[in-house]
Design a binder for these strands. Structure first.
Length: 576
RNA sequence: GUUCUUGUAGCUCAGUUGGAUAGAGCGUACGCCUCCGACGCGUAAGGCCAAGGGUUCGAUUCCCUUCAAGAACACCA
């Protein structure tokens, strides 16, 4: 990948070297005074503090060196010591014509954990973010050259399943799954997703009111964890039904996982892990439970120990989570593991991570990263009570958005209308979901997702398709374009400057593990292009060099848009 | 209660080595299709960056206090 800022920063570093100023890093930014320059360097002010010199003198010293460089058309010093840089036209043209938009492969493996659907519960709107952000981060890593493995880590174990199966037992006490001494084949029973959706909230609510019911559910959970034959057979059937439904939605959202493992898979590693842990002398007894203390003297808030085994002998979320790390290290040996879940799980993961490092389940070189995202709240600004149901089903949301898109779909399009509406709908939902920063809390607002104008998915799609259409027209009339030959017009220059930001944006997104920089950049670049497009009648231009330059520029913007949309896992239809 | 997060335009949100005149979308008010796709483009109004203090050449940004909202805080996941 070509790096524009690196060129500028190297030039400044070089100047600082000549002047014998030492600084750890040089940062050049886009100018916020475009009338004075394209880029600015503000470091003279901080150097002034270190060297006890006037910032203007330092800025002028640096500027005097840069002025000799033909790369710059103008270098000036303003205010207390801002250095403004205006890039020469030749340098801009030369850089744009470098065709290098890929990163070289890296040897590191990043393991991503996202999705996090729960078996026996339909996906609701709260599950949207994990799938969208997770998938996009995975693609971002891959684009940057990292190896990746993604695992959706299904919630397929523990009490929710105990609750569902207990309720099934109440309704069908005759089913042989529940008889401990049953011999022979287990029958295939009628379970469908609709039933599961009804049963879970019912059982969950009942357990809250009815203590004996809760106790029974805990027992059922224990029976599952003990791998009781019949219970396990029933569990397998529930899994099959539920998984099918879950995958249907993930497919719509373009979320593809390398592994569809779950807590049940990690659970198999629990005995092995416990055996390993027991040799380390880090497990302690506390109120009948077994725990790993993870508090540190420097903690401001007392971090409770990680619970490993309950007083009744059962295991917990944190236990399987730790076992999951154990399993992943053993089988895949990743350099980093990223968790993309609701940020309220912060403390839980902090405990698990500390325990993992403490027990050396992972070496200190492996980075365990919690990339929590903002909580999806209801209209009232309160978090959804996900376990009580009553939250909008994700399929319903997607269908509503799709209906809106269908209504507005160009009537001239006669073929594949359903498919196109689907693509626009997914773009709408995904773009809206990744527009705010990852950590920002979210009020679920159907209108927001259905908004098809302004800073939205459809805007980006429409503009991108229009670029492609223009390029196709050029091709039809045998107009070729191979490079940028000259720059004319204000918008052309702006567009080129905007394109120079690509590498920076990609890397910032990677560092912050947030996609908002990418959605934002996509919007800026597209808007900039649309202004350029409105201003210039590209195909009608008589100056052939200019026409070629404009077409080439169009092809680059189109290419960049496609790259970024692909990172966001948004597909672009041919027409809309 | 303790700890953490947040508070920026009517609404939804961007804004990190501390930098010049604080940005965008929606909404509002006006414009622009005889021409490459108008789901497009332009112009305008809209702000005590929660409040107060501090650090310094300079603060939406860093520190302190207050107010307001939210979250987490062992046998749920």
């Amino acid at each position: 990948m070509k790096k524009f800022y690196k060129i500028l920063e190297d030039k400044i570093l070089n100047a600082l070297d000549v002047l014998e100023y030492k600084t750890s890093e040089v940062v050049v930014n886009e100018s916020n005074k475009p009338d004075l320059g394209d880029y600015q360097y503000n470091g003279a002010m901080s150097l002034a503090k270190i060297y006890h010199k006037s910032p203007i003198i330092i800025a002028n010293e640096i500027a005097d060196i840069l002025k000799k460089d033909v790369y710059f058309e103008d270098v000036n010093v303003a205010g207390p010591g801002f250095i403004n840089l205006r890039i020469s036209e030749n340098a801009l043209i030369e850089f744009l014509n470098i065709d290098d938009y890929s990163y070289s492969p890296k040897d590191q493996l990043i393991f991503l954990d996202y999705g996090g659907a729960n078996v026996a519960k339909s996906l609701h709107v709260g599950h949207l973010r994990s799938a969208n952000i997770g998938e996009a981060l995975k693609r971002l890593c891959e684009y940057l050259g990292y190896k990746t493995i993604s695992d959706t880590h299904l919630g397929d174990w523990g009490r929710p399943l105990g609750l569902v199966m207990l309720e099934l037992e109440k309704r069908h006490p005759d089913w042989p799954f529940f008889q401990k001494d049953y011999v022979g084949e287990y029958p295939q029973v009628e379970i469908n997703n609709k039933l599961l959706e009804e049963i879970y909230p019912f059982a969950s609510n009942k357990a809250k009111e009815d203590e004996t019911y809760l106790k029974e559910a805990q027992e059922m959970t224990k029976r599952l964890q003990d791998n009781e034959k019949g219970i396990y057979a029933l569990w397998t059937q529930i899994m099959a039904v539920s998984k099918k439904d879950i995958n249907k939605i993930y497919k719509r959202l373009n979320a593809k996982f390398d592994l569809y493992k779950g807590e049940s898979d990690s659970e198999k590693y629990v005995p092995e892990m416990l055996d390993y842990l027991s040799k380390l002398d880090i497990i302690q007894e506390s109120e009948g439970a077994k725990v790993i203390p993870v508090g540190l003297p420097t903690d401001k808030l007392e971090i409770p120990p990680m619970l490993l085994i309950k007083s009744d002998g059962g295991i917990l979320y944190s236990t399987t989570e730790l076992a999951t790390i154990y399993e992943r290290v053993k089988n895949y040996n990743p350099n980093e593991i990223w968790y993309i879940t609701d940020k309220r799980q912060d403390l839980h993961f902090l405990q698990v991570f500390r325990a993992a490092y403490k027990a050396q389940i992972v070496s200190d070189q492996v980075k365990l990263v919690f990339a929590g995202f903002g909580t999806m709240n209801g209209r009232d600004g309160r978090p959804f009570k996900t376990r009580d149901g009553g939250v909008m089903n994700l399929t319903d949301l997607l269908e509503q958005v799709k209906d809106e898109c269908m209504k507005r779909l160009n009537p001239n399009i006669t073929e594949s209308r359903d498919k196109i509406a689907e693509m626009i709908a997914m773009a709408t939902v995904k773009y809206a979901d990744m527009l705010p920063r990852r950590e920002t809390d979210y009020n679920f607002d159907l209108e927001k997702f259905c908004d098809l104008e302004g800073k939205t998915g459809p805007y980006i799609l429409y503009s991108t398709i229009r670029m492609k259409s223009l390029l196709n027209k050029a091709k039809e009339s045998n107009v070729s374009y191979h490079s940028l030959k000259k720059i004319k017009g204000k918008f052309t220059r702006e567009l080129i400057l905007d394109l120079n930001n690509l590498d920076k944006v990609i890397n910032n997104a990677f560092t912050s593990k947030s996609l908002n920089e990418i959605t934002d950049y996509l919007y800026n670049l597209t808007t900039c292009y649309n202004r350029f497009y409105t201003e210039n009648y590209i195909l009608k231009e008589k100056d052939e060099d200019l026409r070629e330059s404009w077409l080439y520029l169009t092809s680059i913007v189109y290419k960049v848009n496609k790259i970024l949309l692909n990172i966001l896992a948004i597909d672009v239809p041919e027409k809309m």
